[in-house]
């Protein structure tokens, strides 16, 4: 890590530049190649018809929007979990949210199986239910952070066990579909959900940003945070619920996309320090850009086929992360 944290005023332009570049790449690249001028022309004439216009307006824009939303939600929730658990390796799925979502998705595909909106809603409910179980444990105990992590792991395992049990009863097709569904996919056709998801996520991210000071204090450990004037139990619950809700929305919209929530907050801390006044918005913007860019790569390298986006986030994210670690000598 660098001995000094300077030039912090550069974070916003750099982050926005990154997001802008990713969005342009996400709109230009794909099976149908576009030139920048074609893209501008299409964006200026939303009414025009034709293949390229359809591709941009009906497919790429919603997809870029979904990727940005999910990337933002995962990066911000990862930031929050890492700060509250004081663990730089915490990941957005640490509180069993993924297990709950998987269980919900399988239940939906097994028993309801009719409308496509049932799967995301039940996945969302499953994620919330898992979160609620962890919350109950935490409340009953005034729990320490490691108790929360353990509770999360246990709830996750419980969901997985129930899933395996379901597998024995349910025809296996839904199970396989659910696993595919969970694997992380930004090509969902559920565009009408996007505005609502975006609205709720924006509110949650702004809410968390407004408590940047609180997150700073939490990184000092709960004992110190209490001495700095924090009502630990209540505030931690607030942070967990807000971050957990973000994850639940992300999972319901796109399944489990790995690596964003881990690598993005980390990279930004290495660049501009851990102060959350900067970290939260920077993670939101860079997280969005990262997933949009990764998705553009996923759609392009093997076009017309695509690569699962989780493969790209790991393939791009991990080496970049290693490079940052080496660069900063820590």
């Amino acid at each position: 890590m660098q001995p000094s944290i300077r030039h912090t005023y550069l974070w916003l332009p750099l982050c926005l530049l990154f997001l802008g570049g990713a969005v342009v790449a996400g709109l230009i690249y794909g099976t149908v190649p576009l030139t920048p001028s074609e893209l501008v022309d299409i964006l200026l004439h939303p009414q025009s018809s034709g293949l390229k216009s359809t591709v941009v307006w009906q497919l790429r824009l919603p997809r870029v929007g979904l990727a940005a939303l999910v990337g933002m939600a995962l990066a911000v929730s990862g930031t929050v979990f890492q700060a509250v658990l004081r663990n730089p390796l915490a990941d957005p799925y640490i509180l069993g949210v993924s297990g709950g979502a998987a269980l919900g998705a399988v239940l939906a595909l097994t028993f309801f199986s009719v409308q496509s909106y049932v799967v995301p809603s039940l996945a969302f409910s499953g994620a919330l239910l898992a979160l609620f179980l962890v919350y109950l444990v935490a409340r009953a105990h005034q729990a320490a952070t490691h108790t929360l992590i353990l509770a999360g792991v246990m709830v996750g395992s419980l969901c997985t066990a129930m899933l395996m049990f379901l597998l024995l009863y349910a025809p296996a097709d839904p199970m396989r579909n659910a696993l595919f569904w969970l694997a992380g996919n930004l090509a969902r056709g559920e565009e009408r959900w996007l505005p609502y998801g975006a609205g709720v996520c924006m509110i949650l991210v702004l809410l968390l940003w407004s408590r940047a000071g609180l997150l700073d204090v939490f990184t000092q450990g709960e004992d110190v945070a209490a001495d700095l004037g924090v009502d630990i139990g209540r505030e931690r619950m607030f942070l967990f619920c807000a971050a957990g809700l973000l994850v639940a929305i992300a999972v319901a919209l796109a399944g489990l996309v790995g690596f964003v929530g881990l690598v993005v907050p980390h990279a930004i801390r290495l660049l501009w320090g851990a102060g959350h006044t900067r970290l939260i918005p920077a993670a939101a913007i860079v997280g969005a850009g990262f997933l949009v860019g990764a998705d553009a790569i996923a759609r392009t390298v093997l076009a017309p086929a695509e690569v699962p986006v989780g493969v790209v986030t790991a393939l791009v994210g991990a080496p970049f992360f290693l490079y940052l670690l080496r660069l900063r000598g820590r």
């Binding site: 794909g30 099976t31 149908v32 293949l51 359809t54 591709v55 009906q58 497919l59 790429r60 595909l109 097994t110 199986s113 009719v114 409308q115 496509s116 025809p171 097709d173 839904p174 579909n177 659910a178 090509a187 759609r299 093997l302 076009a303 017309p304 086929a305 695509e306 690569v307 699962p308």
Partner: peptide
């Protein structure tokens, strides 16, 4: 068994699309 997306389908614009009803999807 490659994974595709709608953009590729639009780009290739096939004459015929064969679909198989699957339990668990609309």
């Amino acid at each position: 068994y490659p994974m595709w997306n709608m953009e590729s389908v639009l780009a290739f614009d096939p004459d015929i699309i064969i679909v198989s009803p699957h339990p668990g999807t609309s």
